[in-house]
């Protein structure tokens, strides 16, 4: 008999603003057995009258037994029910219920030696960041490339950390794509991510990279189609989407 994944009372030990509309909650989860980068957790909130709501959030952190912490980064949705509470109300010391880790497909395993292409749209970077951090923590040498599409520079999560990691790690390339407003010194005007960007900043299909694409559905649909058109095996393209079609 498989044991049910239990709801655990997690304590918020730190809160970090990532962008004006996204923040990271650092959680201390009792008896957390670790997780793989790309997995998510379910978070459950209970109102005073017993009303409950639960949602899934990607884990942003790499697992290390020393820290024992689980970080989730939450993007505030204007019409959201749970995300505004997590981005605007929760404070250090509060407790929330957490269940996980969940998902065994959209994950990166350190035992894999394949090159990796990561393509993120907006807050879709969160599970990909966990992969970059896990590789960094393990001292992995797998060649990683991240293409990160954001509307404006202010919308990029983890921007400083990504630049630092790319500077310090020859095996990690990070390429930003700005779709509405680029930094003043940026060499190209704002543009949508297209086949040329994926071709120049991903790995060639001949290298047989594992591709992870995460973001809003229309974004993921576009990127996955481009990767297929560039000759990548659809079985090597893993997607995680949010929002409707």
């Amino acid at each position: 008999m498989v044991k049910r994944i239990a709801w655990r009372a997690a304590t918020v030990v730190e809160v970090r603003a990532e962008t004006p509309s996204a923040r990271t909650l650092v959680l201390d989860v009792p008896e957390w057995g670790g997780h793989l980068p790309g997995q998510h957790v379910d978070i459950r909130l209970t109102a005073e009258d017993g009303y409950q709501a639960q949602r899934s959030y990607s884990i942003a952190s790499a697992w290390s037994a020393e820290s024992g912490r689980v970080e989730v980064s939450v993007q505030r949705l204007a019409d959201g029910e749970v995300s505004p509470y997590l981005t605007d109300v929760v404070e250090t010391g509060d407790q929330i219920e957490v269940r996980g880790p969940i998902g065994g497909w959209f994950v990166w395993r350190q035992t894999s030696t394949a090159p990796v292409v990561l393509v993120a749209g907006g807050s879709g970077v969160v599970p990909l960041m966990a992969m970059i951090r896990a590789r960094g923590l393990a001292g992995g040498r797998q060649p990683f490339r991240l293409i990160y599409s954001v509307r404006t520079p202010e919308d990029a999560l983890y921007a400083d950390e990504l630049r630092r990691r790319a500077r310090e790690d020859a095996g990690l390339d990070v390429h930003f794509v700005y779709t509405r407003k680029a930094p003043d010194d940026w060499p190209v005007p704002p543009r949508r991510l297209d086949v040329a960007v994926i071709n120049s900043h991903g790995w060639p299909a001949d290298f047989e990279p594992d591709c992870y694409v995460c973001g809003p559905n229309t974004f993921v649909e576009t990127v996955a189609d481009i990767l297929v058109a560039l000759g990548h095996d659809p079985k090597r393209i893993r997607t995680e989407r949010f929002g409707g079609a």
Binding site: W7, L45, T46, Q52, A53, E81
Partner: peptide, 14 residues
Amino acid sequence: MSIISRGFGGRRRE
């Protein structure tokens, strides 16, 4: 026993 989330529930869905 669930943990009460202080101040949660104001934006609940129907």
